[in-house]
Computed example of a mutant assay.
Amino acid sequence: MPRRRPGALRAQPRDSRAWGDFVPVRIHGISTDSTLAILRLERLSDDYFVYPGATDRALRRYRAFLAPPGRRPLYPQYSECGCRGCSFDDVRHARDVLDEVLRQLSSRPRAELRRQVVSLDAAYVRRTLPDPFAASRQWRSDLWWRRRLAGGREGE
Rank of each mutant, 00 (worst) to 15 (best):
A111M: 09
D89I: 08
D15Q: 08
Y75D: 01
R147S: 02
T55S: 07
R110H: 10
L105H: 00
A8W: 07
I38T: 11
G155Y: 10
S34D: 02
P109L: 03
A134V: 03
E156G: 06
V25F: 07
S141H: 12
L120Y: 01
L105I: 07
D90I: 07
C81A: 14
R148A: 00
D131C: 11
P6R: 10
S119N: 09
D33S: 13
L105P: 04
I38N: 02
G53V: 12
S106F: 06
S79A: 15
D99T: 09
A11N: 09
R26A: 12
R153A: 14
R60Y: 10
A111D: 10
D21M: 09
L129Q: 15
R72G: 12
S87A: 14
R127K: 14
W139P: 07
L74H: 01
E80M: 12
R72W: 04
R148F: 05
D21H: 08
G70E: 06
W139Y: 11
P69T: 15
A135G: 02
S87R: 14
A11E: 05
A134W: 01
R137S: 01
L44K: 10
Q12N: 08
M1E: 14
A54H: 03
E100W: 06
R92L: 04
R60Q: 15
P52T: 06
R146L: 00
A150E: 03
Q77Y: 05
M1Q: 11
V101W: 01
S34I: 01
Y51S: 04
Y48R: 15
R108I: 07
T32W: 14
Q116E: 15
E154D: 14
L66Q: 05
H93E: 12
L66T: 02
Y62A: 15
V125M: 09
I38W: 02
R17Q: 11
Y124H: 05
P52H: 06
A37G: 08
V91S: 07
V50T: 11
A67G: 09
P52N: 11
I27H: 00
G85C: 12
A134C: 12
D33V: 13
R115Y: 05
L129F: 01
G29Y: 00
G7K: 06
A122M: 13
V91A: 08
S16F: 06
R103G: 09
A135C: 04
T32F: 12
E100L: 13
G155I: 12
D99K: 01
S87H: 03
V117I: 13
C83M: 03
I30M: 00
R57F: 09
R14E: 14
R14F: 13
D131K: 04
Y124K: 01
L149K: 08
G70S: 10
G29L: 05
L39R: 07
L41Q: 14
F133Q: 11
G29R: 05
A134K: 03
V50L: 07
